[in-house]
Each structure stands twice: as C-alpha cells, then as structure tokens.
C-alpha cells in the first residue's frame, strides 16, 4: 500500500510496489503468451534486446496483467481480496559493485547491536514478486552465480549468514534483461546462467507499430509519429557504420514529446536523437542530414 508519509512524494516499500494502472504496451509478436506460459510453468525469463525496445515496459505490463483479477469485481470486499493477488514488481538495476549481500541481505548496526535486513531478492522471494534484474551482465560474475539455485527447479535461496534456506513463494518470477549489443568478452553471460532461462528477444518494432507507440506515448500528431518512426528506421540502418545502436524508440518518444510541446521537429530530433546517440561528429552530421531530409521545418 502506498504510504503517503510526506505530502511531497510517494514512497513504497519495495514489496508493496504494484503496477496499478495499465501500462501502454503494444505487443509485436507472441511475447505476452510466452511470458504467461513461463510464469505458469515457473520458468525464469531472459529478455534480450537493445536499449529502448520496451523490455522494462513489457515487464511492467506483465506484472499488471498477471495481477489482474480473473473474476469481475463485485463489491469492495472482493476488491480488497483481489488486492492480495496483486504481484509486486521488484526491479534491481545491476551494476558492477552489486554484491551478493546487496541482493540477499546483510546485518546492519542499530542502537541495540546488529539487525538483519533482507535484500531485495530475498524479499521478492518471500512475497512472491516478479524480480527484475535489469542489465544483468553489468553485475559481477560471482554475483550472477547467486541466482543459480533460484533459477532452476530448486527455487531456493540460501542465506548463509543467517544459516537458512528460503523457498520461493508461489508467484515468484525471475526476469533478467540483457543487451547483447555491448558484447565484449568481459561482459557476457555465463553459459550456465544463460541456460537457466528462456529468452525472449526484443528488437525495434516495425515502423507502423513504432509510429503508433510514439503517437500514443508522446501525444504528437500521427504525421510526426510516422516521420519519427521513419527516422528511427533510417538511423538504425547506420548500425555498424559508427553507431553501436540506432535510435531507440525511447529517444523517438522523447522527440515526439518535445514536438508536442511546441519544439520544432528538427530541433527536437537534434537534442533527442542526433546528440543523444553518438559523439562522433561525422555520424552526427549524417544523422542530421537524414533528419533534415525527413522533416521540412
């Protein structure tokens, strides 16, 4: 439940963070069915794909979708009951200093001595939440190994320091995401980790779908949305020509938002796309030429 401790911001404990409103998500293929099937079959999921292709949004959408009451709500009590079915979404952004204790938990000092505090992974385990480890390759390999026992049939989490083993509550779902774009020998997923997941691949949506997403998300006109989608497509063509990744749908949406706020399209694409995606002057110039070709003003 949301605790409004302070009038200025909302604060939730992590296991009480639910997705209450339906996030906008436009399926490209059968990813929703796959996710549902995996959820029911207790199979961990690996989301693969470049940045800004909707991985995080998809997880949010699925958390919402899976929390949806199956029966139609008749009265307030039932609503309360349904609330219990809701699945919290715990997102952990992985970084290279992420240690095992950051995930599982650690002793903290307080006035009385030490106090154990569960890490997000343990909490997700206990509450049956969807635990989303974003950019898993950024974490150190020794940390990654930690998820092995909970990502196979065992679904257990040993907490050495407390000398206990946690068993996953029903509904616990592990989702990790990973961007193969930065593939370097250092930042690759271990084979043994990889093979504990089913992989759903994300790629930039086709132009019509993308235009629809941009329009919906940014609130710009559909003509602008189409042009932005076209720009996205053209810029993605430049991958391997000095661009690691093309313009993501996210930056296109940003551009769309700026346009709908009254910024001129060219300028909006400049700040959102051209300068955002690369620092190479020549590539910037080329993308700019594409922008000026697509947008008239």
């Amino acid at each position: 439940m949301a605790k409004n401790n302070n009038a200025f911001y909302n604060q939730y404990t992590i296991e009480e963070y639910y997705i209450n409103k339906e996030p906008f998500y436009l399926p490209v293929a059968d990813e929703i069915q796959l996710f549902e099937a995996a959820y029911n079959g207790q199979i961990p999921i690996l989301l693969k794909g470049p940045t800004g292709t909707g991985k995080t949004r998809f997880v949010e959408y699925m958390a919402w979708r899976l929390s949806r009451p199956l029966a139609i709500v008749k009265n307030n009590q039932d609503k309360e009951a349904n609330a219990k079915n809701r699945i919290p979404l715990i997102t952990i952004a992985c970084h290279e200093d992420l240690t095992a204790s950051d995930l599982v938990g650690r002793y903290l000092l307080d006035a009385e001595g030490t106090r154990w505090m569960d890490g997000p992974l343990a909490r997700a385990f206990k509450y049956g939440a969807i635990c989303y480890l974003d950019e898993i390759v950024e974490a150190r390999k020794d940390t990654t190994v930690l998820i092995h026992p909970l990502a196979d049939h065992r679904r257990t989490l040993p907490v050495e320091k407390q000398g206990i083993v946690l068993e996953a509550k029903k509904g616990f779902q592990l989702v990790i995401s990973y961007n193969p774009g930065y593939q370097s020998a250092l930042k690759d997923l271990k084979e043994s980790t990889r093979q504990r997941f089913i992989a759903i691949e994300f790629s930039p949506p086709p132009p019509e779908v993308e235009a629809e997403i941009i329009r919906k998300e940014s609130g710009c006109t559909s003509a602008h949305a189409r042009s932005l989608a076209k720009l996205g497509e053209k810029v993605r063509n430049l991958r391997d020509h000095g661009l690691k990744e093309g313009a993501s749908t996210r930056v296109l949406i940003y551009a769309g938002k700026l346009i709908s706020q009254g910024i001129s399209p060219k300028r909006a694409c400049h700040v959102a796309v051209v300068w955002g995606i690369t620092d190479d002057a020549e590539v910037q110039r080329s993308v700019e030429e594409i922008v000026t070709a697509i947008f008239a003003d």
Partner: peptide, 15 residues
C-alpha cells in the same frame, strides 16, 4: 563521401 556514405546507407538500409 563518408558523410554521404552514412547518409545513403541510412536511407536505403544497405551498405
């Protein structure tokens, strides 16, 4: 030429 190379590759989608 390099600029146009990128520009053309971008537009057409082939190298």
């Amino acid at each position: 030429s390099n600029l146009l190379h990128l520009y053309c590759s971008g537009l057409s989608g082939s190298d």
